[in-house]
């Protein structure tokens, strides 16, 4: 059934048992810490993503928010995939996730790069839900930029 493609077991798992939820202070007081708050104005979903980094490694990617299963599971997967990664690697993962979500279901995800993120392949077929999945990732990009790593801040959706 179509619905199973969207609500993959992995997504429901992350939604019901989110990993690393809650905004955290940096363990290392010398880290730069910055956050970004993004909302999806059409549905009111909200997420705040916080990045703690020494400029090379993302020591922590923490988050909080409220929203649908897709946006909240996506935040959990984001945390899982990017925490502890080198900034360059993290942005490669980010790019792969954005590419997957923009692919209208035509992109075959690489599990080595995206881990549990591959479960979102089905979401890309639901244009109304792509924004939900991308919400934490866009907030992450902003937060990272504010912490001095990665691209310039995105204009908020």
């Amino acid at each position: 059934m179509q619905l199973d493609q969207l609500y993959q077991e992995i997504i429901l798992d992350h939604y019901k048992r989110p990993h690393g939820r809650g905004l955290r202070d940096a363990d290392d007081p010398t880290d730069r810490v910055a956050e970004a708050h993004h909302v999806n104005p059409t549905c009111g979903d909200e997420v705040t993503v916080r990045v703690a980094t020494d400029g090379v490694v993302l020591h922590d990617v923490s988050y909080d928010g409220m929203g649908c299963s897709i946006s909240q599971a996506s935040a959990s997967v984001l945390h899982e995939l990017l925490r502890g990664r080198e900034a360059g690697e993290a942005f490669a993962v980010h790019e792969a996730f954005v590419e997957l979500m923009s692919g209208r279901g035509q992109v075959t995800p690489d599990e080595d790069v995206l881990g549990d993120g591959v479960a979102f392949a089905g979401v890309a077929r639901y244009p109304a839900r792509v924004k939900c999945a991308l919400l934490p990732w866009m907030a992450f990009k902003d937060a990272a930029a504010r912490a001095g790593v990665g691209a310039s801040p995105e204009v908020k959706a």
Binding site: L3, C43, G44, D45, C68, S69, Y126, R129, C132
Partner: peptide
């Protein structure tokens, strides 16, 4: 359960409701 998820499952059954603010 978030309204988005409610609306999505209902849509898969042909039921069109509005979700959001």
């Amino acid at each position: 359960i978030h309204p988005h998820d409610v609306g999505q499952v209902l849509d898969s059954l042909g039921v069109q409701v509005r979700v959001g603010h």
